[in-house]
């Protein structure tokens, strides 16, 4: 069994999957605690329970590939290589944060890593990913773009227009839908008359595939296949990853729209412990190996929180700079 797993996946990749999923989970839990503690001023939409989609999809991409993210974007950032230090500093509204404290959780980005931004507008990032794919195609650059979005976002006009155009132009883009069954408080079946959102792809002329979003290997495989297709001129793919957010839509959400039993049932399908078990049972890693990785994640986040807490706050007047590339008295007068 070990053979099989390590034949198919490099051992470093498996380690990275485990490490990054833990990093995402722990980042979320720390951010939630630090928000309660007052270090973080703004809202947080946590992706606890959805680590496998974010990490599995991002690890199937190449460094030069681009992603667009959502309001639930911390996992996407970490998945694509974002540094928790600068993320935590951004959430704490500090100067060394990814966006100098101007963006916060909702708008966090790292253009150096090809992360074209989280987004406060549902579906807002999808046409942007298609634009990145267009740019790669026009410049014959061997890169692709991936748009993360939720189930609810597929009901926005922006999704439809972007998907249609990507289909017509056969652009190297992946439409990655994290279907966590709810858009805020409204269940998917009240928002869409189809059971599987992946079927929507067929109306744009490309394939839609469904994966278990809590199985990181399934997510990775599907994304890698879609990426290869995109890179070799085969055009877009839509991936619908079925998953679940274990916490409220935002921290503080009373969650009147779902039952504690449902939440508990999905906690039983948590993507991290199941992958952990698999790694141990197949003998890829020992319990001790994994504990060490978990410990290093803990330490990394201790450092990230300490960094954020000690980081300087922006000077109020800084707000006037950086609205335009140009500097002109008449711009922000």
């Amino acid at each position: 069994m070990t053979e099989k797993m390590t034949e198919k996946y490099a051992i470093d990749l498996l380690a990275e999957m485990f490490r990054r999923m833990n990093l995402v989970r722990e980042f979320e839990l720390r951010a939630i605690a630090e928000r309660r503690g007052g270090l973080i001023p703004g809202f947080i939409h946590s992706c606890v329970g959805q680590e496998a989609t974010a990490v599995g999809a991002c690890l199937a991409l190449q460094p030069g590939d681009a992603i667009t993210s959502t309001h639930r974007g911390h996992g996407h950032l970490i998945g694509k290589g974002g540094d928790p230090k600068y993320m935590m500093a951004e959430l704490a509204a500090r100067s060394p944060g990814y966006c100098l404290g101007r963006g916060g959780s909702l708008h966090i980005s790292d253009y150096d890593l090809g992360i074209l931004g989280a987004n406060g507008i549902v579906a807002g990032g999808i046409p942007i990913a298609v634009g990145a794919a267009l740019s790669f195609a026009m410049r014959k650059q061997p890169n692709i773009a991936l748009a993360f979005f939720g189930d609810g976002a597929t009901n926005e006009g922006a999704f439809h227009e972007a998907a249609n155009q990507a289909g017509v132009w056969k652009l190297p883009v992946i439409f990655f839908c994290e279907n966590n069954l709810y858009g805020e408080g409204t269940p998917q079946h009240k928002q869409a008359a189809v059971k599987d959102l992946a079927v929507r792809a067929s109306s744009y002329g490309f394939e839609g595939v469904i994966v278990d979003g809590n199985d990181i290997l399934a997510v990775y495989d599907a994304t890698l296949a879609a990426a290869e297709r995109a890179r070799s001129g085969g055009g877009p793919t839509m991936i619908e990853a079925k998953t679940y957010r274990q916490r409220g839509h935002y921290e503080g959400d009373p969650q009147v729209y779902r039952t504690p039993e449902e939440i508990e049932a999905w906690k039983g399908k948590d993507p991290i412990p199941s992958f952990r078990r698999r790694l141990v049972e197949t003998g890829v890693f020992t319990d001790a190996d994994l504990e060490e990785m978990e410990g290093s994640v803990f330490k990394q986040l201790d450092e990230a929180v300490a960094f954020a807490a000690a980081a300087p706050r922006p000077e109020p007047g800084d707000a006037l700079a950086g609205v335009y590339a140009d500097v002109h008295d008449g711009l922000v007068f």
């Binding site: 001023p41 703004g42 509204a93 500090r94 966006c99 404290g101 101007r102 963006g103 916060g104 909702l106 708008h107 706050r313 922006p314 000077e315 109020p316 007047g317 800084d318 707000a319 006037l320 609205v323 711009l331 922000v332 007068f333």
Partner: peptide, 16 residues
Amino acid sequence: AKNVPLPYSPDLENYV
């Protein structure tokens, strides 16, 4: 409000 997008940071936002 000053003619810049509204920032996330309370320090900046209060200024704007």
